[in-house]
Amino acid sequence: MILVLAGCSKSSGEEDAAGANTLQLSIHHIVNGKPLVLNDSIYYNTFQEPFTVTAFKYYLSNFSLTTTDGKTVTLKQSYYLVNQADSTSRQLVMSGIPDGSYQTLSFLIGVDSLTNVAGPQSGALDVVNGMYWAWNSGYINAKFEGKSDVSTSTANLLQFHIGGFIAPSNTIRTVQLTLAQPQLWSGGQHTIQATADLYTWFDLPNPISFAKFAGTMEPNADAMKVADNYQHMFQITSITTP
């Protein structure tokens, strides 16, 4: 009976037990300073090659906060499929965060390896979302699709499906964002505004020319290079706290 009671109190009172702070991470998609608009807007990569964007989405997971004294607070596990085509998907709400003085927000771009091997999932991880490879088991961690006149692929397409969770093609990347000043949280909703810049995908450390490389759709060295680029795509622009 102890087990039964414990099981019940956990499922009904999780937030109280864990903490009274809620974090809303609000993500804005940009391309080198300009707001990202699907389909029609023309952008330029680092080689001044023009391109349009038809799809831009990626998984974020395994969020944690680090306190000023170096303690890691793991947030309740959730998988977010952030999608330019779905504005609500760009508002990530994480509740049950304990009071504390926080310095760093960390998360993964992608789906951790345990979940990759865990079998059929629901919600954001449901394979109906088109972010999973059937022939070579594993999630597509991030996807960009578009067009560029310089692309030599069929219909000038750009197709960057970045996935792979096994070395040497492990494309899961950790992002650590330092908060401008320590955040002393003692309840309420806190909002972090951040940008995710698609331009970074094709910039440093591996500048990508669409004339030479129009994408990849399997775990490989090219996917690793793109992941090494896009791990720098996030930047915090403001933090508001009650």
Binding site: V117, G119, V128, A134, N136, S137
Partner: peptide, 29 residues
């Protein structure tokens, strides 16, 4: 599973034949 071991969890296996262009070729949604 599969001749090349590309599928590593049996519960995920049905996805491949259901959606493969050369097999049942259906869009999952």
């Amino acid at each position: 599973y599969m001749w090349d071991g590309g599928v590593i969890n049996l519960d995920m296996q049905p996805l491949t034949p259901l959606t493969d262009h050369n097999e049942m070729g259906e869009d999952l949604p």
